[in-house]
Design a protein around this nucleic acid. Structure first.
Lengths: 352, 352
DNA sequence: ATTGGACATGGGAGCGCTCTCACGAGCATG
DNA sequence: CATGCTCGTGAGAGCGCTCCCATGTCCAAT
């Protein structure tokens, strides 16, 4: 009775989608039963269930998410908070891996991923307000900096949250997934030492990030362990250009440097460039080790690096978040993935 | 009953956030007036407005999006549909640019970006169902393939939609933003011809995408215009490895090939590799032209390419979508950005 | 035969918001 | 002075859903 004498094929731009009420009527049951059937169907007779299932298909019924949210207080969406000022960081394969991993974890769920470029929008508090406003069921925070300030606020808000990369203040009991940066960097030092390199320098990431700080500490520990002097340290920003600039500084401090560990692959690429344009060869004169194990661009010198399984780490963060949303009380231990040394040509003339 | 005797400092995990009712009471006005004041405040006295504004700050009020959605039938979110099977395509700088651009367009809005990896989830129809289900106010579709099938369905659903890249069936009146692929490819051909190259081949993208088809057509038109033979054509898949394989084919077909146009930068990089490993030099023996104008990785041979302003294109798609959501009826012309030739070292020994 | 539990069902309230409508106050118009 | 407005306001309905609770039905246990 809702269809008019309407000659056009699709003149109705917004045919109101069927409601649960409609569905129930079509299935010959009550709204309550229809609702139960839709949601897993406990306490529903097989006949009623079948009738509802058929009606769902016949009507093309989709539950109205807003209405459902309103009463359940759940939104079926989680936020991926990318905490960098410039949206251009998206170019970093790191974030691609994160998105890939999180998407993977959400695949079988009906959860949706909301992308939140927290600092790109200008107002950082807007992000917190959004997160606290109950618009999402949980959040994954990536690329956390020391001075962000809202870590505490977020932890206090009670919103299920998982960090990718250890947050600064672990006392808050925030859940996180990380790679063992310390051990990874230590392995890099030991590897270079084992390869007979003795004058070693490092290019760090921004030290307001735990990953960068841990890698520096691990590196220094490795050098100590190998009985080598600490050597020069220069600070980069996880970009290739920053790696080049930092490596230039390193080379200026020690003209006979024979090994460099950079805290990311991108910076290692930049460092190789710096070495080469100083007239020295990689790995002949200077061995270079990175951290990440991104897929190399075609034709690039294969890079010795510390592998971190970012896609898997992000997926685990996703799973952890889902679990935390299901069962908020539970304390969950951080998940730390081991870092593996992958030896390639940039540190050993004979390798691959 | 779920809370144990827990001495923790912030024991209330979910203090119910204030409702409009609370806000109205605090401001000493009615719920209606509070609502009006929140939403732009027409027909609200300055005093009432001020009282509400104060109360908002005092209570930290955030409107409940679900409740609002339920009545307004708007969700304040749009979907970015990435229509590729493998989530790993995220590694392509192309998508990074798209996300950057769309985010930019949404910056001043309270719209949120929902990421939809349409084919990665396995079930493609799930995406359509989600989109038709009224969960978002609009959609931006990127990386559209000929056989997707749901273009029509989407167009018929009445959901405001903007494609990035021309859809196959423009008769449906779908809005889109694109770069002038035809002209860009034509420019590439003319450039190579002007540089004195005469034995030219091309590496195409997947021809079930309009961008790839248009570039092939433009390339062929350019050759015709320059009075050159059509030369060999090999098909790539917009990846570097695909570019290498396709270029190998090209070189096998014509051992004296002296110029290659690849329909993307990534494929051009792959093609350069193929040329070099065949023992010939770029640009000395073979000039290579790409399409995209991505930022080059450090140390790479500067690539002559066709610039397409992807960030801007994506931002325009975002703006177009917002406009279409505001005012659904309006027919909007496609926006086509010009493609610019950027000459660098890969095609001219003396350049940059 | 009587009780009682397990189970399937439907009625109704209510989540937090917007929006229509009616109302009174204030003002200019006839 | 009556009439028609514009304007600010509040009451109330209702968006589509879930969930609590009351009701009805059937079968095992007494």
């Amino acid at each position: 009775m809702s269809e008019q004498i309407r000659p056009s094929l699709r003149a109705e731009p917004a045919r109101p989608s069927p409601t649960l009420e409609d569905l129930a009527r079509a299935a010959g049951v009550s709204r309550s039963t229809a609702s139960r059937a839709i949601n897993g169907g406990s306490r529903v007779s097989p006949e009623a269930q079948a009738a509802v299932d058929d009606a769902v298909i016949a009507l093309g019924y989709t539950p109205n998410r807003a209405a459902r949210s309103l009463v359940t207080r759940r939104t079926s969406s989680i936020a991926l908070v990318i905490n960098e000022p410039d949206a251009r960081v998206m170019m970093d394969p790191f974030f691609a891996a994160v998105i890939t991993g999180v998407t993977e974890a959400l695949r079988e769920t009906d959860m949706q991923l909301v992308l939140l470029m927290s600092r790109a929008g200008g107002d950082p508090s807007r992000t917190v307000r959004y997160l606290r406003g109950g618009h999402v069921d949980g959040a994954i925070v990536v690329s956390h900096h020391k001075a962000d300030g809202w870590t505490e606020e977020l932890a206090a808000s009670g919103l299920p949250t998982v960090f990718i990369g250890r947050p600064w203040d672990t006392a808050l009991g925030i859940h996180y997934v990380d790679v063992d940066s310390f051990q990874g960097a230590r392995l890099a030092a030991l590897h270079l030492a084992a390869a007979g390199r003795t004058r070693l320098g490092t290019v760090t990431g921004p030290l307001d990030m735990t990953a960068a700080a841990d890698r520096l500490a691990g590196w220094q520990a490795g050098l100590r362990e190998a009985g080598l002097p600490q050597g020069p340290v220069a600070h980069g920003d996880f970009t290739a250009a920053g790696g080049t600039a930092a490596a230039d500084l390193l080379l200026a401090q020690d003209g006979r440097l024979d090994g460099i560990f950079a805290a990311s692959d991108l910076m290692a690429r930049g460092a190789i460039l710096a070495v080469q344009s100083s007239g020295r060869a990689v790995p002949g004169d200077v061995a270079v080790v990175g951290f990440d194990d991104h897929l190399p661009a075609p034709g690039e010198l294969p890079l010795t690096t510390i592998n971190q399984p970012m896609v898997e780490i992000a997926a685990e963060a996703g799973r952890l978040l889902l679990a935390d949303i299901e069962d908020p009380g539970a304390g969950r231990d951080p998940v730390i993935y081991p870092a593996r040394l992958v030896v390639r040509a940039s540190s050993t003339p004979q390798a691959d």
